[in-house]
């Protein structure tokens, strides 16, 4: 089993999202018909099924909708990170996205905590949007 951290397998739906993250922006799809954002990026809006979609730079602010403190790693690749906080972030614009909370004190994380995006470079191709408590 690999001890290298898994990287996203980027596809045509997600290329603009990951490219924006690499440039330090949080871009997610916005529907030109129903006016709602969605995440993860799709070619058809999951709310109204329109294909009139464009990427939109969002605020990067949100709150912790729920989370877990991983006391056991998701495989050996994450062993050095334990304990770490994986959290589902509800963005101000509505959609939820899975991420990590960057914190030295996992116990401080709670549902409803306000968070802001921060970008963490994995390699030249991939930068992850993490979040930090504000």
């Amino acid at each position: 089993m690999s001890t290298e951290k898994p990287l996203p397998v980027i596809d045509h739906d997600s290329t603009p999202y990951w490219e924006a993250a690499r440039q330090g922006r949080l871009d997610i799809p916005l529907c030109g018909d129903c006016g709602k954002h969605h995440f993860y990026p799709r070619s058809v809006c999951p709310h109204c099924h329109s294909d009139n979609l464009d990427f939109d730079t969002v605020s990067g602010r949100g709150e912790v909708h729920t989370f877990t403190i991983a006391r056991r790693p998701a495989g050996p690749a994450f062993a050095d990170d334990v304990p770490y906080v994986v959290a589902l972030i509800e963005l101000e614009e509505g959609p939820r996205m899975m991420s990590r909370i960057q914190t030295g004190d996992p116990e401080k994380v709670h549902i409803g905590a306000k968070v802001e995006v921060t970008f963490v470079k994995a390699n030249d191709e991939v930068t992850f949007p993490y979040f930090k408590l504000t």
Binding site: K5, P8, A74
Partner: peptide, 11 residues
């Protein structure tokens, strides 16, 4: 969809 969860260390 797993590209948006697994890399964050989701157990």
């Amino acid at each position: 969809s797993m590209q948006h969860e697994t890399p964050f260390g989701m157990p």
